[in-house]
Amino acid sequence: MQVSVYRYNPEENTESRMQDFNLEIPRGKDLMVLDVLELLKEQDASVTYRRSCREGVCGSDGVNMNGRNGLACITPLSDVVKGDSLVLRPLPGLPVIRDLVVDMGQFYKQYEKIKPYLINDEPPPSQERLQSPEERSKLDGLYECILCACCTTGCPSFWWNPDKFVGPAGLLQAYRFLADSRDTATEERLAALEDPFSVFRCRGIMNCVSVCPKGLNPTRAIGHIRNMLVKRVI
């Protein structure tokens, strides 16, 4: 199989390039893309990427595989390889540090902007705060986000306004706290999102939904936020 990898190391060359590797893929085994990267790294130790849990929960190895964002560790070759070639590029829309490693700073900034923590200034009870299973079920599909950035870096609105549009991942978390029956900062959170950029740059094209490796639906969460914002002024 031919694997084409985006290479960039500003120490050596100011230009990026694509490097082709020919790899023998063991027959009868459907390798994950991360396995392929590990094989490449054995050939050339300078190939650089992030990885850790290798089971799709840490969110380190978001990359662009044959044009599609996803986690290398849980993407089998059979899902992405067309013909006999695989093109690996860094996640789009963020500055590249080296090879497949991007600078996630802007992504994290947007996450921090939505105050991703429970706010409840009432003194806590001596035990847990009670929450019914129905209230808790509102958090399903929200809290599972692993911050891999596959969605946000697949969103054109984030490409254009990375400093002002919160992006699908951040908005999913914004709604995770808006939907939490224990959080009391709804008004403050909504007020911080009502400008024309933070939420309203979402055009509902659902790239985020189609690439999310955890099967989450940021577009739906954004819709919920918009409804809350609209209800607030009407």
């Binding site: 429970l118 035990q127 847990e128 009670l130 299973p133 808790r136 959080d183």
Partner: peptide, 20 residues
């Protein structure tokens, strides 16, 4: 220590009476 985590917002699954 577990109640503190809950107060921080950890989304524990719940029983019918609302406890962890």
């Amino acid at each position: 220590a577990v109640y503190e985590l809950e107060h921080m917002g950890l989304p524990f699954s719940r029983t019918d009476n609302g406890r962890i």
